[in-house]
Design a protein around this nucleic acid. Structure first.
Lengths: 410, 410
DNA sequence: CAGCCGTTTGTGAAAATTCACAAATGACTG
DNA sequence: CAGTCATTTGTGAATTTTCACAAACGGCTG
């Protein structure tokens, strides 16, 4: 059936809008065409009512993040990626999505975009699915030039970005000009974000991060480039609570990579937010520092996002160097380790968790799955054995530092 | 009168004991002769009863520390130092000291020792004072050879000590032999203690420290030497609670220097306790490290005694280096400082004291002389302004570290 | 000068933490 | 195998800490 409909598309369209309207007429429903990042490319004018998801998409010139997330959760987008046929999608009330049909626009397995048609007048069936599939085939040629232009732009942008990253921006004048050409509105605050994956799957993971970034509405991607297994981006938070939205974006990014493509080994880090392009280099280096620490943390530890969150970890390198150099072992921990080994106890870990939970007996004991009094007893024991005063801020702080350092893999 | 009694001492004494007995007969009371460090040199045999202070001195072969301290507090020892005449001393019940007369044995202003005579049979008056003064004059020649021998010994001991300090002890065999000749009983545990004074008064201060050390019964001085404005000692704690007695000794030493000669600028530090002479070098270096930190601490801060007490301060050097290098300022503290300056508030100091007092509102507020609720309010304010979570162990620890580092003079 | 805002202090109730004590367990020992 | 010792858990009372609220203060501004 598809073959016969292909003929219907053997004509020329002078714009994507015209193409959208044509499909709309054929299928008798509102049509939306998006690029691979769910940015609006074209939409049909159609008299009939339209669902709220489509309205927001058109107003915002992109599919709302919530809608994209739901489509992923419902396995609709993955399904569109995997198949060439058009898909019928039942309404999803909570995101204002009515019944519709969708198809992905693919060229040799690469996603170029999507076509959506709402079901308003006629019930969609086999016939409409085939029609849409034919439309998608035609769309490939329509989109390719857009796609090509973007790739060209990207190349230029990456060159510019590297100049910022390496601090090769001495001729402030020139770069300012370049940048003014680049942005319609100069970004106010921005930060370098780096993602690092392990060697395999680099390309796949990077593609997905870029996709997530492009569809994220918490931040705006200004530049991006890659360096071996690292993806480096300059991003601008959209909201006023800048740090927060940036943190949210990074956390979500890692979360989505896990959910959507099952990749766990992605580390991320952000440099400090800055407002001058001369600071980009510094932000980049700080982002790398964050990643370095995250890499050394135990797997179950909450990872850092910003450099200023590192606290004493920002000294980790020189501290570990000194520790290695002087071969002095903190006597308290040494003694406890010995005692633990000899008596089959767990004082060391208990102390660590206790300190990591801010000397909060309740929380620490919960974490350790022991009774509060048990922990209290152990801490009293620790005090007796090591002769430390557990209510002394300096000692506590020093021990926590020492414990944190020994926990770092090196 | 003194001159006429001098003739009575124009004879030869074949031992200090004989000399003591001779004085005892002349004055009709028990006699004790001590060296400059209140170590027993000789005592008369005398039938009459003797006070408990004298008994303990003879049993322990030295004047008990408590007695010495009281004699200092009562300004008796300083008086003996300053005058050449014999002094009458009223009984001091709490240390078991009966009425007695004393004189210092001096050679050109250097104290060589003391002679004590108890008043038991006859009441002492002018005549006895003059007799005792004459005895002291004679004693000079008696003690000089003891004194000379000791100086000789010291020279050899200092050479040996420097070999230990510089780790030039590769030929373990040889040094072991030397040491075995040196000590009747090989010391079990020992530590290097270093005192540092500012440039003026070095000699005076060092003399006093050595005196205090020699009279201290908490520790035994094994070796000592000096290096510019530093006094370096190897000491052995006498009691089983070794660390404690060593700490006590050092604290007391500094205390006594303040009380007795009004010197405030003395810094001290101990290395770690060790039990092999090959560890002496390391102990020495650690003692120097402790002093370095103590020197950098704010004047009102409690000073450290042992290296293992330094906690994170042991990393101070590399941390300060990195801070200087990277010119990154902790944003939380930066923000607070700014706010304080603009609004004439005291959030920075409040946070510092709060953290230094282990997040204990009551203690911190007491220290700051403000109401508990005021501090609570300020801390809430800090949280709002800087967006930190004050109940987070890592943040607290990091901030305390950062604050402590900024407080170090560099 | 009234009024606002940020700050400080006081009060007392509510919530939490700490502490003492008892009992049970289990490993190790003479 | 009884007994000791270190450890764990439970209970409830004592103590401390936290929190909300009111009131007052002082600098600043319209």
């Amino acid at each position: 059936m598809v073959e016969q409909f292909l003929r219907k598309f053997q004509r020329r369209f002078y714009s994507l809008e015209e193409f959208a309207d044509y499909i709309s007429e054929l299928l008798d429903g509102p049509v939306t065409i998006e690029d691979s990042n769910h940015r609006l490319l074209a939409y049909s004018t159609h008299k009939e009512h339209t669902d709220s998801a489509r309205v927001s998409t058109i107003i915002g010139r992109r599919v709302p993040e919530k809608v994209i997330n739901t489509l992923w959760k419902e396995r609709i987008i993955p399904a569109l990626h995997h198949q060439n046929e058009a898909m019928y999608i039942r309404e999803i009330k909570e995101i204002g999505l009515g019944n519709r049909m969708a198809v992905s626009i693919k060229k040799s397995n690469e996603i170029l975009g999507y076509i959506w048609v709402l079901e308003v007048n006629r019930s969609f069936g086999e016939r409409e699915a085939s029609l849409l599939q034919a439309a998608a085939a035609k769309a490939v040629t329509q989109l390719q030039q857009v796609h090509y232009l973007k790739k060209e732009q990207e190349k230029n942008s990456q060159e510019l970005f590297w100049r910022l990253l390496t601090g090769e921006v001495m001729e402030e004048e020139g770069i300012q000009n370049d940048l003014q050409n680049w942005f319609s509105k100069m970004p106010q605050h921005f930060s370098v974000v780096v993602f690092e994956t392990n060697e395999e799957m680099v390309e796949h993971v990077h593609k997905n991060i870029v996709y997530i970034t492009n569809t994220s509405q918490k931040i705006k991607k200004l530049f991006y480039t890659t360096d071996r297994n690292m993806l480096i981006m300059l991003v601008e938070p959209v909201h006023n609570r800048e740090e927060k939205s940036l943190r949210l974006f990074i956390k979500q990014c890692i979360q989505l990579l896990k959910e959507r493509i099952g990749v766990n080994q992605v580390l991320a880090g952000s440099g400090e937010l800055c407002s001058h392009f001369s600071e980009v280099k510094d932000s980049y280096e700080k982002a790398l520092d964050v990643i370095t620490i995250n890499k050394q943390l135990l797997p179950d530890k909450e990872k850092f996002v910003f450099y200023h969150e590192l606290g004493f970890y920002r000294y980790a390198k020189v501290l570990l160097e000194q520790k290695k150099r002087e071969s002095y072992t903190e006597p308290v921990l040494e003694l406890l380790k010995e005692y633990d080994h000899k008596n089959n106890t767990d004082l060391c870990k208990s102390l660590a968790v206790y300190l990591q939970h801010d000397a909060n007996m309740k929380e620490a004991s919960k974490k350790l799955h022991i009774h509060v009094n048990t922990l209290a007893y152990r801490m009293k024991r620790v005090e007796e054995l090591t002769n430390i005063d557990i209510g002394n801020a300096h000692q506590k702080s020093s021990l926590l530092l020492e414990i944190s350092l020994t926990e770092l893999s090196d």
